[in-house]
Computed example of a mutant assay.
Amino acid sequence: MDGKRSKLAVGLLIALAVAGTGLYSWWQKSTMVTAAQIIGPVSSESMVKNDKVMVYISGGINRPGVYEVQSGLRVLDVVNLAGGVTPNADANRINMAQAVKDGLHVSVPVVMAGSQSENPSGSNNERISINKASKSELDKLPGIGPAIAERIIEYRQTNGAFKELDELKKVPGIGESKFKKLVSKITL
């Protein structure tokens, strides 16, 4: 008889488990709340107020592509999000302060290797990136020696990448006159 009782007890437990699962499932369905009940109906007006915009960035950029960004950001923010400009990019030819809008295409121009400058000597017009250049590259700039090159690198490490060329004047040893000599030879 003990064998029959244990089989009966196991069968009763299985039946209770099946009944409990069915009851729990029914209870869950009856208390389920849909998203529409929480947020209400979606109108076309509420869809227009989306805070995100799509921006396409290409050209002299490290990670070109389409980016979904917060509306109200600037081109500079998208450039930074895309990994910054490449060393051969001419970032001075785009408006970094422009507010982004949905569908904007930012094309960062690229200076071709071996391109000639507009000066009669025909020397190479490749600009040096103050955000990426090494100490030896910065040292090649007019009026920048090893000490000031080191200060530029220290400034970058402390404050992050330069956001505009004028910010270079915050580096000790670079005043207005030295900056004027550099501005045509540097880029971000």
Rank of each mutant, 00 (worst) to 15 (best):
M1N: 14
M1R: 13
R5L: 14
V10F: 10
I14N: 03
V18Q: 04
L23I: 06
Y24R: 13
S25V: 12
W26C: 07
W26A: 15
K29H: 11
S30D: 06
T31D: 01
M32W: 14
T34H: 07
A35L: 14
A35G: 11
Q37C: 03
G40R: 07
S43I: 00
S44P: 03
S46H: 05
S46V: 13
M47Y: 03
M54I: 10
M54N: 14
M54H: 09
V55R: 08
I57D: 04
G59K: 04
G59L: 02
G59R: 06
G60D: 09
G60P: 10
R63F: 11
R63L: 10
G65K: 11
V66A: 12
Y67I: 09
E68Y: 11
E68W: 09
V69S: 10
Q70M: 08
G72P: 01
L73V: 05
L73I: 01
L73N: 07
R74G: 01
L76H: 06
D77I: 05
V78N: 11
A82E: 06
G84H: 08
P87L: 03
P87C: 02
R93P: 02
R93I: 04
I94V: 15
A97E: 15
Q98C: 00
V100D: 07
P109E: 08
V110C: 03
V110E: 10
A113W: 00
S115W: 06
E118S: 15
P120H: 00
P120M: 04
P120W: 00
P120D: 02
E126A: 10
I128K: 06
I128N: 05
A133G: 08
S134Y: 06
K135F: 00
K135N: 08
S136Y: 13
E137Y: 04
D139K: 14
G143M: 12
I144D: 01
P146T: 13
P146Q: 13
I148C: 03
A149K: 05
R151G: 03
Y155T: 02
G160V: 05
K163L: 09
E164R: 13
E164N: 15
K169L: 01
I174Q: 10
G175F: 03
E176P: 10
K181S: 14
K181M: 11
K181I: 00
K185F: 06
I186G: 04
L188D: 03
